[in-house]
Structure formats: C-alpha cells, structure tokens
Amino acid sequence: MAAVAREAGVSSALLHYYFATREDLIRLAFEYHETRETARGEERLATIDDPLARVRDVLFRELSDDEVVREGWVLWSEMSRTAIFRDDFRASVADRSARWVGLVANLIAAAQDAGRIPAAIDPVSAALRLTAMVDGIGGHVIVGSLSRAEARRTVDLAMNEMLHLNPKDQT
C-alpha cells in the first residue's frame, strides 16, 4: 500500500482513510476496472456491425496487448484468490463472471438470430466454455508461458469448433 500511496502522490494516512486494507484496495480497483472496461466494451461494440465479429471482439479483447487489459488480469487473479475464502469478494467476482458469460451468450444468440452461427448451438453452454478458455489462457499469456499469437490462434480455433463456424465465413 505504501507503493500505491507514493505512485498516487497521497499520504499513507489518506490512503488508509479511504481503503482499510490491501484487499479492499484491490477489490475497489477491480470494480473500477470492470466498470471502465464495460463502458469501453459497449463503445467498441457499437462500432461493429457484424454480430459474429462482436463475439470475437469481446473474447479477443482479453488477449490484446494493452496495459489496461494486463491490469485486469492481475486484479482478477488477485480477486479470485481472495474470493475462495471471502464472501464479499466472491460476490464481486461472481458479478463480473455473470456479466462476462452473459454478454458472450447474448452476442452468440444475436449472431444466431442473424444466421451467422448455427441455431443448434446452446449459447450459454458455448459461452461458458469460451470464457473459461479465455480465463485460463489469459494467465499463460501474462506469465509468458504462451505467446499472445498462439493464445489468439487457440481461441480462434476453439471458436470455430464450439460455434460450428466455417473458417471461410469469418471476417
């Protein structure tokens, strides 16, 4: 917390006035990050017409080479770790997951309505498998055990398989 106070140019006392513990600070930073990223995501999606490209956008956003995205991974893994033991953190992480899986499921369903993804796919189940994959692979990219390019290729192939896409149809 001393490092945060230094970087933010505030006194340790002021920081502790606002945030009781290191965990509280991380939780609020995580929630701030999530709110900001959700707003940015909505802006980006508004500029994309193809419903299939929208699915791709939200999944690949988490694998982009971007400082904010990296921050998000670090905060999420810290939060998840704490959430194993603490209910208040669990609510915060569960909220993020519900939004993340729900968003992907809704986008898949919209792409199905537009005829871009076969109707036979269960959007919720496919969304869960895809978000779990991105959540698993993201850590490898941050740690450096997998290159960003290979992670993207992996998710791309998984999308084709899970959503029964014909590679030729993709944008």
Partner: peptide, 9 residues
C-alpha cells in the same frame, strides 16, 4: 491447449 486452458478457467 484448447483442452487445458478451459480447465484452468
């Protein structure tokens, strides 16, 4: 990779 990554998730 496509099997292991979602397992970690």
């Amino acid at each position: 990779l496509r099997l292991i990554a979602p397992m970690e998730g």
